[in-house]
Design a protein around this nucleic acid. Structure first.
Lengths: 251, 251
DNA sequence: CGCCTGTTTGACCATTGTCAAGGTGGGTGG
DNA sequence: CCACCCACCTTGACAATGGTCAAACAGGCG
């Protein structure tokens, strides 16, 4: 489907705070937002993009700020959350390299509705939303990529809602672990993608509860050491994640 | 922004189970998915659409079914939920006339990931997903409408996640009531858009909890009789909805 | 070697789910 | 036209999941 390689020549030549590196280009090539999109479409707004670096915990944007940029994660992780007013917040998603941050807000030509914060050191591509919208309006495969990415985000949000509303903590964690694994049965090994406190918040529970849930899963053959997790029997864990809390009434 | 009136001539002449009525056409004109979209783009797939009627509680589609159609609600309501395996389910959204159901699934060319069920008698426009995708690929303003609608859906899902993770039942209800009201301050009157049990599920709580939450809000000047709700002071309710549960630790 | 951050554990408590029973209102049939 | 019925909603008593607070523990990096 790719229309050949994507050199991103122009972008490499610009870049305000810093230029695109070889590794960055590889990430951009793999980015879901740009798959199936030809160079002619991407280059115009990449030329206006720049690279931005963030320290751990640095804020990328806050609610009510006008949405001037769309970002692509090149290195590190970005957590996006809502409700910071309350002292507590709800993590809505964590973006890994290759993902687009604030796509909706940038497209809507409005303001950001959430907070984005760096998890560890981050390297981002900062694309002016205006330039991106122009490219989108000019047609081409970009709009279908945008639609695909939005659809994925929506699916993930719905999966989250189901998990949080329907599953107790242990099953919620089981479900999450399974989403990190490719195997359908047998054993599996995985590394948690970020620190447990962040996972806990993403799963809508406190770190203490995550810790206890992890302990509960030991009975089902899930062992862990640090962030390294071993699942003895994937299908067994899957069955457990679909389990109902003991006594429940039919809806 | 409208490119003139949308006659939908062809569609009126077809329709399998039933033809489009005058009222249906009015709904379609107001549908977010078709705003800014010219007749030439809409008519080809409307010509392939048909009208479908559902009884109360009738299932429109189930998870794993191949996503052959996208629907527009013409009359009645459609609730979409996940997790029916569990006996319990989580209502993700309730679609009112003018809304598009299963847009993501139809676009993704895959399978439905949730269950859609009629709430009361329903009248729907059933658009073959294939025809819709063709129209989308042919460019035009349709893709920007699709992007806008997906963005709105995503925003709503995120708002839901915040509500459910961060707010206790009473504040959650307050937040929901405020979303049904236009006033920013002073008093307001509203009618709950669907039965309380459905609202409760949408808000991630049991009907009993909704009932008690409603009672709690009486102290804040929220009175109700049946589905009719009166809010004495909108700004006061707004302030309450942002309140934190008494003792909370800083995140 | 020791700090600092992240994680675990334990004890306690609050919110909300659960179960059971009673109320209310609108619509239908006698 | 009234009475009944049924679905929807409310109320009460109770239980339990998960949050809260406090403290100990581990592990990586200076």
């Amino acid at each position: 489907m790719h229309t050949g390689h994507l050199p991103f020549k122009i972008a490499i030549m610009i870049g305000e705070s810093s230029a695109l590196e070889r590794e960055d280009v590889a990430i951009l090539r793999g980015a879901a937002l740009f798959s199936d999109v030809s160079n002619e479409v991407v280059e115009p707004f990449l030329a206006k993009a720049s690279v931005r670096l963030l320290q751990n915990r640095e804020i990328l944007f806050r609610p009510q700020h006008t949405a001037e940029f769309i970002f692509i994660v090149l290195r590190g992780k970005i957590q996006v959350y809502r409700g910071e007013t309350a002292g507590k917040h709800a993590v809505l998603s964590v973006f890994l390299p290759g993902s687009a941050v604030a796509l909706e807000a940038g497209l809507a030509q409005g303001i950001y509705g959430m907070t984005a914060e760096a998890v560890g050191m981050c390297r981002l591509l900062e694309i002016p939303a205006q330039a991106f919208r122009t490219a989108l309006a000019n047609g081409g495969a970009l709009s279908s990529s945008v639609v695909r990415v939005l659809t994925q985000n929506l699916d993930e949000a719905f999966q989250q809602l189901e998990r949080i509303q329907l599953k107790p903590t242990s099953q919620r964690l089981a479900d999450f672990l399974l989403s990190l694994v490719n195997e359908r049965n047998g054993s599996a090994e995985l590394v948690l993608p970020y620190e447990k406190a962040l996972i806990a918040n993403y799963l809508g529970m406190e770190p203490e509860s995550l810790s206890r849930a992890l302990k509960d899963l030991q009975d089902l053959g899930v062992t862990n050491r640090g962030r390294r997790v071993h699942i003895a029997d994937v299908s067994r864990l899957k069955a457990f994640s679909l389990t109902l809390p003991a006594n429940n009434r039919a809806a």
